[in-house]
Design a protein around this nucleic acid. Sequence first.
DNA 1: CATAGGTAAGATGTCAGACATCTGTCATGA
DNA 2: TCATGACAGATGTCTGACATCTTACCTATG
Lengths: 233, 233
Amino acid sequence: MARKSLVVEVADSVLDRIVSGELSVDELIPGELELCETLEVSRMTVREAIKTLAAQNIIRVERGRGTYVNPVNMWNSLEAVVRATTAGVGAAAAAVQLIELRRMLETGACELAASRITEEQLAAMGELLEAMRAAHAAADLDGFVEADLEFHDVILRASGNVFVSALYEPLGRVLSSRRRETSAFAQIQQHAIAEHEHILVALQRRDSSQARQAMDNHMQQTLDDLNTFVLNR
Amino acid sequence: MARKSLVVEVADSVLDRIVSGELSVDELIPGELELCETLEVSRMTVREAIKTLAAQNIIRVERGRGTYVNPVNMWNSLEAVVRATTAGVGAAAAAVQLIELRRMLETGACELAASRITEEQLAAMGELLEAMRAAHAAADLDGFVEADLEFHDVILRASGNVFVSALYEPLGRVLSSRRRETSAFAQIQQHAIAEHEHILVALQRRDSSQARQAMDNHMQQTLDDLNTFVLNR
DNA sequence: CATAGGTAAGATGTCAGACATCTGTCATGA
DNA sequence: TCATGACAGATGTCTGACATCTTACCTATG
């Protein structure tokens, strides 16, 4: 992996202090000159870093006054919100909330997709399901995860709603790093394959409520599997 | 309103060119020096502006190569996605898709809120509904819009899911600018009050599926009202 | 003693010029 | 024909400077 730029490092450093609670909501963050000295970088580097956090609404810059931390619900970066939430309520509770959010978007997208999906997309889903089965049989974790994610992605695109895809994208990036962790269990893979079969059938029938229900069942299964296999509770 | 900084103006200028289609996905955007000359600002100002777009994943910067436009679904800024989508499919289709997205999040949040909402929050919702009625009677549009938005906000917070609030925040900001447009119709206000009553009753009963259904009905009513009163179709 | 105005200090906004490093392309030599 | 090196164009980072906004403190006047 390429080495991170100093701008990114400075931005991460400030975000770490916010996420850890060292800097609280509405608290003044250290000024440009102080961050220069502390982090041993130029003022221009600090300014660029600060601007990237401001662009994500994590902080707000007030000319002549200072730079303040925004409330978490103002933040535009889901990654940053996940970091803050995980630090606040713990990884387990954060993971559960992420699945709750995912459930809302995926069941809604599935419902819309039922009446909008094309034959090509249905065919692609069939192939992806077959690829999941093959990867499962071959104990190919990477292959399984890739096909699983792509299956859901087709549904999102079939929803015909640009905003759902846009909002799901950061969620997908957050989830994909832990997808390998859960899909490593063969039984979870079997659950996923079975639920995907139901989803595909409902989409083939172009039955909106059945599609939504099938995806809802899948999300419930995913939540159950998370609790049983990963969180052990 | 305070005058925008040059950094913000440069960022907006580049985003305008992307959103308008003048710069397409994966296309190289003008380099730092070219933007300096074109926009008559310093290279540092251009760099800061570029960094803010990169922070929102609208563009990606590759050292030694150049800066490229990312696909819209990679963008982290809902405002930017809305601009691009509106430019692409038109304001009407974009508005419809936003309500589809809103429906997913609000019905999901309402379902969770049914079992998690506190007595204080229920009381607050009752007061907000009363405020809506009063504002409606007094033909107070601003008061009505404020109470309406706050009513929904209580539900989001009652969902107990930080991520739903985080994702809804930009959506709420996008919607609030056009809420005054739709709430200007007295009949739409009446529809909203009636649907909010059903929602509150279902939440008071702590009935998850009834709460979700009531919110779903509200979103459908909102979509119908949008089509009937605003889009005229 | 209180209020208002002015000044200064501290904060961010913007600039110009310089050098470092990465990437890609082209030319030359083997 | 292929490989290597050099150069040009791109971004990364820095230093030093000046502009402008905000706030706080001090002084003067009523």
